[in-house]
Amino acid sequence: MELFYEVEGNGVPIVMIHSGGVDSRVWRYMVPGLAKSFKVITFDGRGTGRSPAMQEPTSLVEDLRKLLEHLGLDLVTLVGHSIGGQVATDFALSYPSMVERLVVIAPSLTGFAYSQEFTKYIASVNAAAPDIARLVELSLAAPIYRATMASPHRSFLTEMHNHYMRRVFTEWRSFEVLWPEPPSIERLEKIAASTLFIQGTIEWPDMYNIAEHFKRVPAIRFAEIKGADHMLVLTHAEELADSIRQFCYS
């Protein structure tokens, strides 16, 4: 298995898929609590943390499938944050028999048309390349990081972001991610797994529009964490772990 992964605990397997701009260390505050009840698998997505760099167009969904096969797991709960939520959603649609429960935390969504506000922000960050310090500064200045950057987690998030940006601009040879077709936004009503959608209240307006689309999932419930921003996996780890635990036992 090419991807770096770690397994903690015993019981029903939960696979955690991290967001962009960080690596699997982002789950460090959630794993200990969850591992008391579940077998928790965390991994560094391709090009992040201790996993190999992107060298060619890559399917993150197929990377996940290969990891589960390597671990001998044929039925799991997926927990995905941001783009990790996008991967989890696409995986649940591509391999429905392998996903018992789906938890998406402030997810992105294939096929979703993002707002001009968001696309302008992304363009302004990308324009700073290859100045790593400036890329990190602009990226973390977004309003969706306001609570985290005012918290004790500021330095940890900044360090992970720096590590990610350095790898992207010194090691990656491809930036193309391959996604299943048709895009998941057109197929959400086909998700068979029981689903939990969690978000904070400090988010892009786009997140609320994505939540509206997820209402088409047949078996879904929604949870909102007041005062949390996009990195609620750091600032509200215990509350998130409790929500996941209750969802899995419901």
Score class of each variant (00 low, 15 high):
M98C: 08
T77K: 02
V79W: 00
S24C: 10
Q55E: 15
D44N: 06
H70S: 13
V40A: 00
L102P: 12
P52Y: 09
S37K: 13
P52L: 11
S51E: 11
G80S: 04
G45W: 05
V26K: 01
G49A: 08
R50Y: 13
R50E: 09
A92C: 09
H70K: 08
M98S: 08
D23Y: 02
P57E: 10
L93A: 06
M98Y: 02
L64K: 01
Y29R: 15
T77P: 10
Q86Y: 07
T42M: 03
D90N: 11
E56Q: 13
V31A: 03
R65K: 14
M30Q: 12
S51L: 05
R28L: 05
L64V: 06
S94L: 13
Y29L: 15
S82T: 03
S82K: 03
T48A: 12
A92D: 06
R101C: 07
V103D: 07
P96M: 04
P57W: 12
E69R: 11
A35T: 04
V61Y: 13
G84V: 00
G33T: 15
L64M: 09
S51R: 07
I83H: 04
K39D: 04
P32D: 10
S37Q: 08
H81P: 11
G84L: 01
H81A: 09
E100D: 15
G72L: 00
